[in-house]
Amino acid sequence: MIAARAHHGSAALRHVVLIASSLFILMPFVWMVSLSIKSPQEAFQQTISLIPSVFYGHENYQRAFVDVPLLRFMGNGLLICISVLVIQLAIAAPSAYALAKLEFRGRDAIFAMVLVGLLIPHQVLAIPLFILFNKIGILNSYASLILPGVISPFGIFLLRQFFKAVPDDLIHAARLDGLSELSIVWRIMVPSSMSAVIAFSILSVVSRWNDLFLPLIFIQDQQLLTPPAGIMLFRSEEAGNSYGPLMAAATLIVAPLLIAFLIAQRRFIEGLTVSGLK
């Protein structure tokens, strides 16, 4: 009896603690959505309410699309995320296979370079890449946002760790069956390491979609901005007097990844854990 009551107590305490920290976490999301459906008058009222008396969401969300090319931003973001991911995988998978399973002179040196690359924060590359892109004339283009991302030491490293765990006999059997080395990569290694590929894809897309640094540096043309740089532009143009549309735009930019996360929660969290603990 006493034990049961003590259990009750700890369960309640746990909820108190977790609800408090959840409120802290959710606060900006809730306020963002709340402001995005409030009229300007109501936003500036001193009373505290989350749900507006007049639903003004329609106007705010419409203005978010009119004031800035929000759809264009999101389209740009999508295009860049997908291009980067496809090229990253196409380049990383074969080399991860070679580093994991083939014996050749220079392998260890190349792997060491991958590890060094793993340590370099990508912001370090901003100046030299800026100069390089200026030289070859691709500043202020999609290419300048795609190119810095195409080589992912992390992707190579992660896939290599997983490829190493694929049994050698599977590769030997595939060779006897007449598969070329490249088809071994795509038909054997990648399918048998799907969890790593998915984990990497999620991380790649999330970090690309959310990145502010590169578009801020490489892009001047408004039409080429990605969502994070776009919302920053929106904010500086509106200069703080129309919070409704700004919050509506912020909500729309945050929404795709959050919705994807809520739908495939387990995949996202597994992906993160897998890549973290390898």
């Binding site: 920290s21 900006p28 963002m32 969502p227 740089a229 919302i231 904010r235 945050v254």
Partner: peptide, 23 residues
């Protein structure tokens, strides 16, 4: 609880910074 606490990791920080500013 896990999903709630994980949301900020996924959310575009530039946009959430604006939400924080409003907060």
């Amino acid at each position: 609880y896990r999903a709630v606490h994980f949301l900020p990791v996924m959310a575009t920080l530039a946009a959430m910074a604006i939400a924080w500013e409003a907060l």
